[in-house]
Design a protein around this nucleic acid. Structure first.
Lengths: 223, 223
DNA sequence: ACCTGAACACCGTTCAAGT
DNA sequence: ACCTGAACACCGTTCAAGT
């Protein structure tokens, strides 16, 4: 193995951006956004907090890199079908599932606007939108709408999980709590919210998410 | 004025949840999410950090209350037209404009899922969706899609502003920077992103936002 | 009932000093 | 070139003590 920096091979335990990012993902998966601290990270890597700053600019850089690793894998796993509509759905669902497995990427994606992770999604959506025949002048608004929707759902998901984790309850219990709060709202001011609260538990998040994508897709191809 | 807690009228300078929320909004508007600290707040209110905790549960409670004050005003300012489609657009645009004036509500809205500020928006959208004739079993998914999209745009907006503020540049300069980064991406891997980067500066955020709303609206009413 | 302000238990980040 | 770890400048939150 040839390295331009010299002939000495690295010790396996030496620090590297990749090792730091891997450890960060483990920390984030295990205990959420609050679990990633430079102290916890340096302890896990048997080093000092300062050492990490040699490989990483700051915490946002670190979270963005961790998020990008997940998004890159997710995009790679999606087989590129020929149908653009199916491709858009596949990308959206891929991100949704990745966010279910790693809720913290929801906030990481919004924290780093215009950065690589979001751009990977944008690119995939964009290629499909072009293939769908959307005229050039409407392409940006269309892709941007799809991305905003996906990131919006992701942000909500991340917030829900964080809330639930903070109160040490599960997602299901959290939703039940929200439904209870909504049912107790003023009947005159919040008739819709009260009505929907009772029906909320029946719904599947993943299905609802896809319905939203289909709504936008239908809008794209409608006159 | 009769108060059930007793006959002594309050000094005008005494602390109250309302005064704390007002001061928080001023702090948030002036210096963003990072500007709201219990120390800065207590200094502005000429008191100690601990005093604030008598009126407010924690920082999330405080940000939610501040956000709710803005959302409540915004909703009150929207004249309820008879056309449900127009009402949905008006609510969406109202929130968009409020987020332009107070970028921090973007993150406040996602931070407090299921809380009052988001529910106010949900309720308004919901009533219009019902008026639009969407069948009951599709109402939740429809409203949820609209809300996710709106919150998604808001989150992006908030992040953009935060990024720009941290680098001490304006929104325009930030977007130019993003465009430059995108133009420098690999041509084989990111053809769409590169192409769109050149056209991005021409677009108006507010118009793009409304296009997204119209896309979803078109999807709702399409077969 | 409401306020004070010191103290606690953390953060991210920096930087002289080492190898 | 890369790592160490103490130190800096903050945070949100708590709580005994006051009025």
């Amino acid at each position: 193995m040839v390295r331009k920096s010299g002939g000495t091979p690295r010790r396996e335990a030496s620090l590297s951006r990749e090792r730091i990012v891997d450890a960060s993902i483990k920390l984030l998966d295990a205990s959420g956004e609050a679990g990633l601290t430079f102290r916890a990270l340096s302890e896990r890597l048997a080093t000092g907090p300062g050492a990490i700053y040699w490989h990483v600019a700051d915490k946002i850089d670190l979270m963005t890199a961790a998020c990008d690793a997940i998004v890159e894998r997710t995009m790679a796993d999606i087989v590129p079908g020929t149908d653009p509509r199916g491709a858009i759905r596949a990308v959206a669902l891929g991100i949704f599932d990745a966010m279910a497995a790693h809720p913290w990427i929801g906030s990481a994606l919004t924290m780093a606007p215009g950065q690589l992770p979001a751009v990977r999604i944008l690119e995939r959506l964009g290629q499909s939108v072009v293939a769908l025949g959307v005229p050039e002048e409407r392409q940006w608004a269309t892709v941007s709408a799809l991305l905003s929707y996906i990131l919006g759902v992701g942000g909500q998901n991340a917030a829900n999980m964080q809330f639930a984790r903070a109160k040490d309850i599960h997602r299901q219990a959290f939703l039940a709590e929200v439904a209870a709060t909504w049912s107790a709202l003023d009947a005159d001011a919040f008739p819709f919210t009260r009505a929907i609260a009772e029906r909320m538990s029946t719904h599947d998040d993943r299905e609802d998410f896809l319905t939203g994508i289909d709504l936008i897709l239908a809008g794209i191809t409608s006159p």
